[in-house]
């Protein structure tokens, strides 16, 4: 999480959820989507495209698929359509993968 969040720090609330991204622990609010939780703590990319370009969540409504991220071992999960859960393990993705998560396309 090298780049500062592009959003203001939220006031502390109860009901925090603990999760990790690429091994680094962070907290989210219950009710956050994975995409919102990541945007709240970091301005970094969610993934890199097949050509190596950085991308982060974009539309926040399930349309663009730029928020694809590995959630609990399931690659290409739509971060903006997935609710956070305690103990969730996130990994940023590099390159293209099949939507089914079965194999790399390249």
């Amino acid at each position: 999480m090298k780049i500062a969040s592009r959003f203001l720090t939220r006031p502390d609330t109860t009901g925090t959820v603990r999760l990790t991204v690429d091994g680094a622990p962070f907290t989210a609010r219950a009710g956050d989507t994975v995409a919102a939780a990541l945007l709240a703590v970091s301005g970094d990319a969610f993934r890199q495209t097949g050509k190596g370009a950085p991308r982060a969540a974009y539309c926040m409504m399930g349309v663009c698929f730029d928020c694809l991220i590995e959630v609990d071992g399931q690659p290409n999960s739509q971060g903006c359509m997935t609710q956070v859960r305690d103990g969730m393990v996130l990994r940023r993705q590099h390159g293209l993968r099949r939507l089914s998560g079965d194999e790399d396309r390249a």
């Binding site: 959003f7 939220r10 956050d32 990319a45 969610f46 950085p54 974009y58 926040m60 409504m61």
Partner: peptide, 26 residues
Amino acid sequence: WTLPGVMPAGAAQILMKTSGLLPRDA
């Protein structure tokens, strides 16, 4: 427009509504 740090305005509004996230110096 594909860079992290560029988003639709409506997406920011969704973040306000769902997560209380407010854009910083947008």
